[in-house]
Design a protein around this nucleic acid. Sequence first.
RNA 1: GAUCUCGUAGCUCAGCCGGUAGAGCAUUACACUUUUAAUGUAAGGGUCCUGGGUUCGAAUCCCAGCGGGAUCACCA
Length: 572
Amino acid sequence: MQLSEQEIIRRNKLEELRQLGIDPYPAPSVPVSHFSVDILNHFTEEKKDQFASLSLAGRIMSLNDKGKVIFVKLQDSKGLIQLYVRRDDICPGEDKTFFDRVVKHLLDLGDIIAVSGFVFTTKTGETTVHVQSLTLLNKSLKPLPVVKRDEEGHVFDAVTDPEFRYRQRYADLIINPEVKETFVKRTRMINAMRDFLNAHGALEVETPVLQSIPGGAAARPFVTHHNALDIPLYLRIANELYLKRLIVGGFDWVYEFSRDFRNEGMDRTHNPEFTILEFYVAYKDYFWMMETTEKLLEKTAWEVNGATQVTMGDRVIDFKAPFKRVSIFDAIRDHTGIDISQMDEAGLRQVCRQLHLEVDDTMGKGKLIDTIFGETCEPHYIQPTFITDYPVEMSPLTKKHRSRPGLVERFELMANGKEIANAYSELNDPVEQQQRFEEQMKLMERGDHEAMYIDHDFLRALQYGMPPTAGIGFGIDRIAMLMTNSPSIQDVLFFPQMRPEKIQGADLERELETAGVRKELIPLIQKLGVQSMAQLKEMKPTKLFNDLAGMRKKMKLEILNATVEEIEGWLK
RNA sequence: GAUCUCGUAGCUCAGCCGGUAGAGCAUUACACUUUUAAUGUAAGGGUCCUGGGUUCGAAUCCCAGCGGGAUCACCA
């Protein structure tokens, strides 16, 4: 890696610290009696005695050198607190080296330290730790992007580059505290859901990620290969069929927070791997499931934000139960004025043309209806709304509607114009399930890549008998976006998928090393603009000698100059 | 996958019609024993994403590539 000026300076400081007998990476664990926020929230002048001796540890986020006094902002896992470091306190004797050299010059933003001392309030009224001893715990070699904030929390020169933020999430988390808050909320949200389910007697289970038949959803899977079995295996696109096998096996209510994988496009609402909460409940139907969904989401919103309303951009979305319910045909009629409830495939195709929607021959009735709904209705449902009673063609795993022919007992929950959950009364007639699978095979033959495979083992399970069951899948990432006011799925995933990064010059470094170049000289060669071994070999050893010596001087490096003989050795 | 757009110092960004590369913060040095976006003085720091082309001359114009973002397509 080519080092910047600031990085070289930090490495030199590292050396100086060692020469002063200070280990920049010490081993022992350190006592931590308080977190920053504990002090800020509870300290008062009256309670001074309780804060007379404490210790804390964290990362230096700002250094304000006032001469014989330095103010430090220390960031620990909970927040930021100011430290007051006075020369005569931490260097009571004659030798002031520790303050004058170590604290004043060898500490940098990003270093991790431990301190002990007592709490007081400064003239300007800020609760501050008066430091009596200070220990370096970790010297940071890479400068953090600098973010300055004023008292109201206004940010100056914020790091906004998404590539930096997503690729180096660790740095993003250090400098942008609200990012941390987002992920804490995400976990709180998942905990709230888990608590709700456990309180209702549900059992958390785990089912295979590697599946030989990718089932339970319409999506293109990732394929991998099992060497010992010599068979293809697929990363799961859903866990539905496995959870229903468990209902057959006699569990009443099972759930799983399932990481699923779909080999499709990526955008603001899609990541190749994402999390779905699916659960299945015996002896229930989709009406029961609607009520349960309302309760679950209302409680979750409350636990995360202390209110049933969440803010999403300039919208407010209210998860207060009950949610509106609209059948899919009514929804389409409301938004297009067209009643498609009695139409066949040809009629639907005609409607799509009329609405200028793109269709092709591989699309069956289900996909056509889905296209119409997705294009004309879906974006309009901002408040949580159940869209109910889908046509049978687009729901191969769903029980037929008890009273409406051609429909199934299914709902999707829309919020903020996006689907966030999908549920139905599960199809438990094994003969009909087989027929539905066969229809899917026909779609596949027409060229539909997302049509489902026949899962014979699942059919066998259904033949033993599955109680009437209601099932649902929640898009956890999308709900997390709503709960945290995040416009992009990448903001609620710690490490969103990205194209692998090319680390520049990594190959050259290796080549140079094999050619016998001393490690400390490699940055100099890179600094000269050399980009390949071939380019280096074209250079005259004497010129290289001169250039390297010049660069060494320019960068003020305390390293041994390369000799001409040495350089000739590399170029052979 | 398509279209549009962006890529300049560690960070945020400016750089006009092509003419020696700029600011603030950060860094380095000095001063300052309750500061707070601390301040004052001085200094250093650049593969202008990469590679080609046009030109006497390219950060700037053209082409290709790489990377990001947006929109669309795909995605119940």
